[in-house]
């Protein structure tokens, strides 16, 4: 277990809250600010990659809705239209998607990042490529507050988890981007592997500032009237409530062994889910599929988390990894 205290930085020293608590009947609002993976965030609730991340305007909107940071749609080196539809299918407790990494290429994306930054929260550019050099080239060409390496998309040939399931490739891609860029590098890991910990350790060896777990689980839905696979790509990645327990376990395992912070993502749709993920060891969390409920989800999770910390009289730092300390 990494040492606490490095991951969190209180927003202010304790003098002012103490004074406030002296005059007010209720205890001070707990600080939600967090230093994670090389970034200072006003709160630990981020917008996940691939969700409302195609345009600067929609990222800005997430930022203004309260997100502590926003991750863009994954950006590659050439324009891609993505897979034919249907691109999503709702299933019990979740969503399967196969968007197919649509993006205008990094050459046409800087203006979106610049627009997204007007929202105030750090903008993390998710990037993908088929080789370490391609990742490095994109990271050299984009100006963002951090990069999140998509080594985990489960439904695009030659990209994502097709590289990301090999620890040696995870390490070399991470190392190449670290060498090419001067901003923090986060590595998003795939759960479609026998041992996600191996992938996390590889990212750490490559110099990752944080790992993000998990991406979607490979999944499929079939139309029983006709036998056709519903998604245009035939299979895709499962997200949403269904995968939360899988994500909690992955984050728990990673946080128990890695020195670098773990950012938890997968099925978080309430403040209770956020608390659970942080207890598993996540220093911050990302929200994706729950945006189906609208942008209000950020405020809902943030205020719920804040009220929880207040009720329990604990800090975010104390909450982080609590499950690992319970024996």
């Amino acid at each position: 277990m990494k040492s606490d205290g490095q991951s969190y930085r209180p927003e202010s020293n304790s003098a002012i809250p103490m004074l406030l608590s002296f005059f007010c009947s209720s205890p001070p609002m707990p600080s939600l600010s967090v230093h994670v993976g090389g970034l200072d965030l006003k709160n630990p609730v981020l917008l996940a990659a691939g969700i409302l991340g195609t345009t600067g305007a929609s990222l800005c909107r997430a930022s203004r809705a309260g997100a502590g940071g926003v991750v863009t749609k994954s950006i590659g080196s050439v324009p891609r239209a993505g897979h034919p539809g249907p691109c999503i299918v709702h299933v019990d407790c979740g969503l399967i998607n196969a968007m197919g990494l649509p993006n205008p290429s990094y050459r046409d994306f800087q203006e979106e990042i610049d627009a997204a930054r007007r929202g105030g929260a750090p903008v993390i550019a998710s990037i993908f490529g088929s080789s370490a050099e391609e990742f490095a080239q994109i990271s050299r060409s984009l100006d963002a507050d951090a990069f999140e390496l998509n080594l985990s998309c489960p439904h695009a040939e030659k990209y994502g988890s097709e590289l990301g399931r090999y620890p040696d490739l995870v390490e070399s891609v991470t190392g190449a981007v670290k060498a090419a860029s001067n901003v923090p590098v986060w590595v998003k890991l795939t759960p479609n592997t026998a041992d996600i910990l191996e992938l996390g350790l590889a990212a750490q060896r490559g110099g990752a500032d944080a790992v993000v777990a998990i991406n979607t689980l490979k999944a499929m839905a079939i139309d029983i009237e006709t036998g056709y696979p519903i998604l245009g790509n035939r299979f895709g990645g499962l997200s949403g409530r269904a995968i939360k327990p899988v994500a909690v376990r992955a984050v728990y395992d990673l946080a128990s062994r890695l020195e670098v912070p773990v950012i938890g993502v997968g099925g978080i749709s309430s403040w209770e889910d956020a608390v659970e993920m942080i207890m598993a060891g996540a220093t911050s969390i990302q929200v994706g599929t729950a945006l189906l409920q609208g942008y209000g989800i950020f405020e809902e999770i943030i205020s719920g988390l804040s009220a929880y910390l207040q009720r329990k009289s604990i800090t975010l730092e104390e909450l982080c990894g609590m499950a690992g300390r319970r024996t």
């Binding site: 691939g50 969700i51 409302l52 991340g53 195609t54 345009t55 600067g56 305007a57 929609s58 990222l59 800005c60 909107r61 749609k73 993505g82 539809g85 691109c87 999503i88 709702h90 969503l95 998607n97 968007m99 649509p102 627009a115 994706g288 599929t289 945006l291 189906l292 609208g294």
Partner: peptide, 19 residues
Amino acid sequence: FKCAAGICGSCCLDPEGIR
């Protein structure tokens, strides 16, 4: 439109980001 569910972001209108 890709997702038609308000989450993929491909139909967002600048500058407000209307889905």
